[in-house]
Design a protein around this nucleic acid. Structure first.
Lengths: 330, 330
DNA sequence: CTGAAAGCGCTAACAG
DNA sequence: CTGTTAGCGCTTTCAG
């Protein structure tokens, strides 16, 4: 079973070089020989071993995709975009869940150090940037969605500040003045940028920025949204609107607001961020910011493959969109 | 940059064999030599190339995980289980979304045919069983969750019939006699099994099985649950309970029931299946069947690695659990 | 148009 | 305890 190129050559009465040539359709081969070889390949049910090919070409045709949690819906469409392009270019992807743990991360970094992967698309906001930058000196790396300005690693992302600004502006427009903000940890760039967008919108409309309205969560999960709302609803000046930096947080908020006996959007309007599938399945459906996920994925992998091939690439900033649904349609 | 074993050997003044020996800590090496080699490795920042090692060992240390949709929450914990064990055993996983398309599937099958992957864990109910069985003749394959009885491919799963039976029995116990059933396509084994469980529960309690109460959906998505409920609510003898074969369907049902002005659980009780994270985030929270996902994953990968190592393995059937929440607490 | 041969980086059997 | 050597399966010069 499982013939190798040698056996095919022998059986076809040619040299391995010729077999290799017909395999790749390059270098001229007489039609007669080609047909003979092709027949033998079928007859022996031969499939070239990627192990041999990879060693010879010193490439693995594997791309590392780093995400913090595989279950975070935010990444689904990005991954889909990456995957489709990758496959069409003869690459496969290794989806790596880091749990934002440096040890896990390092296992994956080792994969490229040991040539098991040709490059990395990093989407983990909590990635160890120092390690990533060091790795980037010798290996192709691209950042997607989250990025570090100070590094030379190219990225594709959206304008988080502007997106947050638009979300909050929408809340103001429909009559809210007391707008709470559920943000994530300030050490993340996007958190800082969205915070600036939030503040810009308020200031532009002559509204005060109240520290007690800004809540920082440790993680982006559902339960953290619930927690945040619990504390927000206890404020004296109860907000009439909540803007959360992720849909998961917003969905948690939704649930907790209901649990406390309030109604969305009549009592409290809610806006999320990301437009994950579930944001349209909640009760009421969630107003949110949509990022062009799929496109982000395709662009990121395009960039990475270009880098692997030795070309230079430029960072890209994509557009976003405000999707209005029931949670603000008061 | 990126030294190879040769350069390390030269720099350390030993042979490549010795370097290989200290790399694997096997075969005796004089302490003095070992230290010298280890120092050189650090000095040159050497990391052995997996390409060379893999070719030599004719293995890739990559495991293929086939799932229909990466976004299906059902698989999250299974994958986590697989991943943790795999990594601890020095394997990495290639998460493959088949979209239940034979072409996509075949691309992935090629990965094992071309030695880029050492084995497969198939979790796609719609997998092309013929192709899979043929592949299984020459490559290690394990089925997880969904399986085909008639094949020799070992599997790990739960007793779907019994699980469905318990879910429906619970609905009967809390006073329901008219229980609708949102099932998926009958060509899937689990769908047939759950149908049997549903019918057994009804019959055991002297309730008639009404064909019009059984709805078959094309896919397991949220919107199919909505659709199903739309048609179910139009029945003359409106059911007072709904059992869906997946949480996603049940969550769609929840939303549509509300949209039609009914209340869960007072007017209609709902039970799902899978206990995905979101089943606890809905309003009301969903009663559902929990499968030991994580464990299923770890066992499946254990089995696969055993098979790769040439050992025989036996199929496993795991226990499940009924999780009672608000959607049936009327 | 085709073949011989070198070599990608590593492991392991064998000899010493 | 250590070195020599033969491949693993493939691609690609270089000659012919």
């Amino acid at each position: 079973m499982m013939a190798n190129i040698q056996q095919v050559a022998q059986e076809a009465g040619v040299s391995v070089a010729t077999v290799s040539r017909v395999l790749h359709g390059q270098g001229s081969v007489a039609t007669k020989t080609r047909i003979k070889v092709e027949d033998t390949i079928k007859k022996l049910n031969y499939q070239p071993s990627m192990l041999g090919r990879n060693l010879r070409n010193s490439e693995s045709r594997l791309l590392l995709i780093l995400i913090p949690k595989i279950s975070n819906p935010f990444y689904f469409d990005i991954i889909k975009g990456i995957e489709n392009i990758a496959i069409s270019q003869g690459y496969n992807i290794l989806l790596c869940e880091t749990d934002s743990s440096p040890e896990r991360e390092n296992i994956y970094f080792d994969l490229v150090r040991t040539k098991m992967a040709d490059g990395i698309i990093s989407m983990d906001p909590a990635v160890n940037m120092e390690a990533l930058m060091e790795l980037a000196e010798n290996h192709p790396i691209v950042q997607c969605s989250e990025y570090a300005v100070e590094s030379d690693i190219p990225y594709v992302t959206i304008d988080s500040e502007e997106a947050a600004y638009r979300a909050v502006k929408h809340l103001i427009k429909i009559g809210n003045e007391n707008i709470a903000f559920i943000n994530s940890d300030k050490r993340y760039l996007y958190a800082r940028q969205r915070n600036e967008g939030y503040q810009r919108a308020l200031k532009e409309h002559g509204l005060a920025v109240k520290e007690e309205y800004i809540y920082h969560t440790e993680h982006l999960g559902f339960e953290y949204g619930q927690q945040a709302v619990k504390s927000i609803l206890n404020l004296e000046d109860r907000p009439t609107a909540v803007f959360a930096v992720s849909d998961l947080l917003a969905i948690g908020a939704l649930k907790e607001i209901h649990a406390c006996g309030f109604h969305v959007p009549d009592d409290i309007a809610v806006v999320g961020f990301d437009n994950i599938d579930f944001s349209n399945m909640t009760n009421p459906a969630l107003t949110t910011i949509a990022q062009p996920m799929y496109k982000m994925g395709t662009l990121a992998v395009d960039m990475l493959i270009k880098k692997i091939q030795g070309n230079d690439v430029e960072s890209i900033i994509l557009d976003h969109e405000l999707i209005m649904r029931e949670s603000t349609s008061g």
